[in-house]
Each structure stands twice: as C-alpha cells, then as structure tokens.
Nucleic acid binder design. Structure first.
Lengths: 263, 263
DNA sequence: AAGTGGTCTAGACCACTGC
DNA sequence: CAGTGGTCTAGACCACTTA
C-alpha cells in the first residue's frame, strides 16, 4: 500500500506563490504554515523526501533542501531511517537570581531544584582536578600569573536528556584541600562551602550569549541540528574578591532564563 | 586556467582522519581548525567551492555541504558572487538590570545608551497604534477580555545594522491619550512617562529564550544563516499592577546579556 | 568577463528503522 | 525487507560581485 502510484496524486500540500520564490523555499513555507496551523502536531511525522518529490514533482536534493530549512530553524528533527518529525520541547525555567539567594543555598537545596519541577534530575560526568587556569579565567578571577585553580566540571541530565555542561573554576588558594575537591560537595553545594571557608559570595554577574554549537558540544548535549546553545559565564564575588567563575553551556531549547529585579 | 588538470594537486588543506568520518565533515573540521588557529582571521575569505573541489577532489555538492556546516555554525558567512568569509562580530553588552535602574530612566538617558558605547544608534520602523492584545499579552498584562492596549513597535539599528525588534504593549486604560501614543515619547522614554502618569514601574521580569529565526525575522534583522535570535519578554510592574509587556527579538550574535545581582 | 555562490536535476550506494 | 534519511557524483543554468 503506502503510496501506490498516484501520478496526478494530490500533493500533500499545494504549491503556492512560485513568483520569484525558490521551489525549496515554497515547499518549506507550506510545511511551516501547516505546522503552525497545527496540522502537524509536535511529535508527528512530516512528509518525507519521497512524499515531497512526488507531491511537488521535484528532485531529491530539492526536497531535502526544503526539509533542511525546517530542520535548521529547529522546527523539525530528522530521525535516520524513520522520517522527519515535528519538534516538541518542554523548557525549564531557570530563575537566574532567585536561585542564588542566600536562602536557597544555605538551606541545602540544590541550585537547580527550582528549575526542574518534579522531573528526574541527575548530574554525571563529574570531574574535579587542579590545574593552571586558561587565560580568560585567570583574568576574570583576577589571579596572579602562577596561581592555580580547582576545576569542577559536570553535566546536568534532566529526564534522561543532557541539558547543561558546567565548568566551575575556584582559586586554589581559597579552596585547596577542602571538601570542594571531592566529587560531592555536600548539601548546599559550592557556595555553602565557600561560605564555610569565609568566602561566601555576595554578588553575582551572569553574562549570557547564544550561538550555534560545534559538533562535539552537540554530541555531549544530544542536540539536534537547528538548536542553538546558550553560554553563561557566572562570576561570584565575595566582599573582597572573585571567588568563582562558572562557565556553562546549555541546550537553548531546554531553557527559559528568568531574571527578576527591582528598579 | 580554471581547473586545468592538477590531479595530484596539493590541497588547500590536507585531508585527515578519513576513518569513518564523512568527507564533508572532515573538510569542515579542517577549515574550522584553521579558523581557530587564526589561519583565517575574521573577515577573511575562505577557500570557495571550487577550491575545495580541487583541493579535496570531491564533487560540488560535497564541497558545498562542508561550507554549509561552518555557515550553520555561524562561523562563516556566504556572500553571493563573492565568496565565503570568516565571520567577525562585535557584541553589545546589554546591562539587563542597571539599564532599568531609576537613575537611568529618570535622568533622561536612553535605555540603550549604556549598551552602545560610541557607536551610531538609530531607531526606525516606529509604529504606534491601539489594538486588541494577543492572548498571551492579555494574560501577562492581567487584562479583562475586552481591554485594549497601546502597541509600540520599533527596530533598533546599530552602526547601520539592525540588531533588535521590539514591540511594547501598554494597557490603554492607563496610557490612552498621553504622549505615549506619539512616535517620540520624549526624554526618559516609556518608563519616565509611566511614572508621570502615576504608574512608575518598580519591579521587572525578563524571560530570555534562544531559537533560530524564521525567514521574515532573518530579513528584518539582516541575519545571516547560522545565527540564532534571542527572545526577551520583559514585564514591568508598578506597586499594584502590570504596566507594560515588551517583546523583543535580538540578533544573538550582536548581544551579550548581562545581569548583576546580590545574594 | 571571469569567478562566485545559489539552485536544480537524475541518478547512485549506504546505514538505519520499522514492521 | 521495504522505506527512510545521509552521503556523494557529475553535470547544468542563473544572478551576483569584482575587476
């Protein structure tokens, strides 16, 4: 069954406005409109390359190019051997300020607990070691040229899907030998521990920037084509110095970043 | 000239690790590495399709696919008829919190003045009208079903390049008939005017999210392929109510979003 | 006028998915 | 095993840029 041989077969979609517009663009626009109309719901399969070739009477590469448009927009996700599907996602709301309030971190709750609701959260690929800091980190931490840092890197996995890579740099002069060099820093995490050491952070800065991932990042985060990442660089300041710089890379489709503040 | 017949011709780059890796991926990786090594500086022309065909002995579509990888990563920008160039960009730092401090907006400085340094800033495509709010805006503004809003939309252009689209919604019940319905709201902008009307904002919320643009947005912002946009939804609250919702779409490559806050 | 990227065709083989 | 997307070839014509 399947397609049979419907030669005058009514296309899955009718072509439209061929005036000046490229074929692949017209096809992409038809599909995009159908998605927005809800004709293809999130998770549903879209017409494949063969469907489009027959329906619009175009060559394979042209049909592919049309699908590539939607894929690069992040509206669709290809699955090898199975088809192209409408994307569905469920973003986490990350409270950029509230999560760092004193209340949150001294009370021993995870910094991420507010973000994830009831979904299953795990941290893996934890790695802790001492090292020379990269130049950009040394600048941000305002360290002497020969100062060393403790590097804590980890990956956050939510409901089975990796959503964030995090690498935290702390001056070795402050934290060397403390619990921070263990995989599990205990209740309250890094900031509670810094407070115990007399360097509790009082001010924070977060710089956010968005870009397309490189292949290795896309793999570690399990990101399909057409999904940006957000880089977050957070600096934590005690009363007198910079006590931590945390570089994070997040799957942009997994997050909403929220900042609340007064005038 | 042209191709001639240099069959053993030395490639622009040497192929590497063909083990399992696709040809176009290997080419893309070579180029990416060369860019990161600084071999191709920002603004410089990369080897074109013809160069790659000869250098790697591949078909046109394969060379194109390799370049498409870099373009989709935002590392390179194609210029029709001219070549493919290494991207260079110069992000604006947008101070998400400081810019909204009372000092900033009552003193009559533009909300964006802190962002732009000395670069030429202009606002165009200004449009002001009254309308029924879209559903999502009515919810955010906590309005009755029949309430109307004043809609102010505009485009921000920095040094000749569009960087941000902004659409602001204000309850008509508060602002109708005021200076806010004129194109130029005067010194201090919308928030100073709201304060004059007795609805000065005291708290703000910004929700940020990143995604790939759709074609019409890419055109309005002059965004090349491989560049995400950042959506910002800012809500402004007076002591008693929501006084403004501002939906913004920014060229992600043009901005760094900065948030400073204390614990 | 030459070179460039943009689009398009008509084939081909492959690995993977699903039944 | 049939269908799918992933990759690749070898041509072609076009509009555009640069000189």
């Amino acid at each position: 069954m399947l397609v049979g041989h419907e030669r005058t077969g009514p296309a899955t979609h009718m072509p439209s406005t061929p005036g000046g517009e490229r074929k692949y663009q017209a096809i992409a626009r038809d599909l995009r409109a159908a998605i927005h109309r809800g004709e293809y719901a999130p998770g549903m399969r879209l017409p494949g390359e063969n469907d489009l070739m027959r329906g619009y009477d175009v060559a394979r590469m042209t049909a592919r190019q049309a699908l590539a448009v939607l894929i690069n927009e992040g509206l669709a996700v290809p699955r090898k051997g199975a088809g192209v599907y409408v994307r569905d996602f469920l973003p986490i709301i990350r409270e950029g300020i509230a999560q760092l309030s004193t209340f949150t971190w001294v009370s021993g709750r995870s910094i991420w607990s507010a973000d994830t609701g009831s979904r299953d959260l795990r941290v893996d690929q934890v790695e802790v070691h001492q090292d020379d800091p990269p130049d950009r980190i040394r600048v941000l931490l305002e360290l002497e040229p020969d100062a060393r840092v403790v590097v804590r890197s980890r990956r956050v996995v939510l409901a089975g899907k990796p959503v964030l890579l995090s690498t935290s740099y702390l001056p070795a002069a402050i934290v060397a030998g403390s619990r921070i060099e263990q995989d599990d820093t205990g209740a309250g995490g890094t900031y509670a521990l810094l407070a115990e050491l007399g360097h509790g952070p009082e001010r924070f800065r977060e710089d956010l920037r968005s870009r397309m991932p490189e292949p290795d990042e896309a793999e570690r985060l399990g990101i399909p084509a057409g999904t940006p990442v957000v880089d977050i660089i957070r600096s934590a300041y005690s009363a007198t110095k910079v006590v931590e710089v945390n570089e994070m890379t997040a799957d942009a489709s997994a997050y909403i970043f929220r900042y609340d503040f007064g005038a």
